[in-house]
């Protein structure tokens, strides 16, 4: 017959135990380097970024402009139909104000980051990016924004060719 557990195993260590080798251990630093093939859709997307343009793919079956662009539509599972330039303006769908960098280290100047849906693509289709020229009091969901591009000569064909999205000014397209 079985029994309800009474003892719960596990020996806790402190950070000091680990970092100052109070227990025996082996350390390892892997060197894993990659060269990812960008593929058909992302290659064109990156090349267009270098020109200061955003591009999507049309799915004629679903009557949608897919962004980021892709060569097949995951919903109807057919190849997408053609390339369509879209705008570099959009709407903040959500955002965060981050006091952490990628290694969970604390930073004092926060990063404004979020999802921006792009005008000209189908509803709610967008990318993650930084926001600039905003404060924690001005940024809000629903804010209209526009890409702040790097100068043409500094662009490399990367998502970072857009420095950030900034508030759309009145009368601006």
């Amino acid at each position: 017959m079985g029994q309800t557990p009474q003892k719960w195993p596990g020996i806790e260590l402190s950070n000091d135990d680990l970092l100052n080798k109070k227990v025996t251990q082996t350390r390892y630093h892997p060197r894993a380097k990659f060269s990812w093939s960008a593929g058909e859709a992302m290659s064109r997307f990156l090349n267009e970024l270098k020109e200061g343009r955003l591009i999507g793919r049309e799915c004629k079956h679903c009557n949608k402009i897919l962004f980021p662009p892709r060569m097949f539509c995951e919903q109807c599972f057919k190849p997408t139909s053609k390339w369509v330039y879209i705008k570099d303006t959009g709407t903040i769908q959500t955002y965060s104000i981050s006091y952490l960098d990628k290694d969970a280290k604390r930073i004092t100047n926060p990063i404004y980051v979020g999802v921006v849906s792009i005008d000209g693509a189908s509803e709610k289709m967008g990318i993650m990016h930084y926001f600039g020229e905003v404060t924690k009091d001005t940024i809000h969901i629903g804010m209209k924004v526009k890409a702040k591009w790097k100068p043409p000569l500094e662009r490399t064909g990367s998502i970072l060719d857009i420095e950030y999205f900034r508030p759309l000014k009145e009368g601006e397209q």
Partner: peptide
């Protein structure tokens, strides 16, 4: 956690995993 992101679209922005939860929570 940084390596679960798309290497071309997301990782150049140096994302922290907490960001996506923060964005979802805010929405």
């Amino acid at each position: 956690f940084a390596h679960i992101w798309d290497p071309i679209l997301d990782r150049p922005l140096k994302p922290n995993l907490i960001w996506i939860f923060a964005m979802e929570m805010n929405r």
